[in-house]
């Protein structure tokens, strides 16, 4: 037995966990894309990237769903990922499909500001090579 000398494994573990927690591949791809962006922002500190990734998916309450924002809606039988086109008191329309809020088990949003929130002192402009 040994320890992980490289904290990149934390990022890989997080990606592994996505496949256990979610079924929607488009949503998983967007979360991984966010991981990749974080890695570009703090390339030398994968431990910080892994830490930020823990907060990249954010569960929100049905009353917090906003129009024009992209969400993953976890229902009993399926997961629908898309922009909330229309939001009313008891339903939300996504990709032309109306979902009753009482059918939603969980609503998840991708938070693209985790570095700003968790480690604001490491927020810098990323220079192109």
């Amino acid at each position: 037995m040994s320890y992980w000398e490289n904290e990149f494994v934390g990022i890989l573990d997080y990606i592994d966990s996505l496949f256990v927690r979610y079924r929607n591949m488009e949503f998983i791809a967007d979360v991984i894309r966010e991981a990749s962006l974080l890695r570009k922002r703090v390339p030398i500190l994968p431990g910080i990237v892994a830490m930020c990734l823990g907060s990249v998916t954010k569960e929100i309450k049905p009353e917090e769903i906003e129009q024009a924002q992209k969400y993953l809606f976890v229902l009993e039988e399926e997961e629908i990922y898309g922009v909330a086109e229309k939001v009313s008191g008891d339903s939300v329309s996504v990709s032309g499909k109306k979902i009753g809020k009482n059918m939603i088990i969980k609503t998840v949003k991708i938070n693209a500001s985790t570095l700003e929130e968790i480690w604001p002192t490491l927020v810098y402009e990323v220079k192109e090579r």
Binding site: K40, P43, Y124, E125, R129
Partner: peptide
Amino acid sequence: NEAGFILPSA
């Protein structure tokens, strides 16, 4: 002042 990171192995 700190001004960002360099990509390792760039």
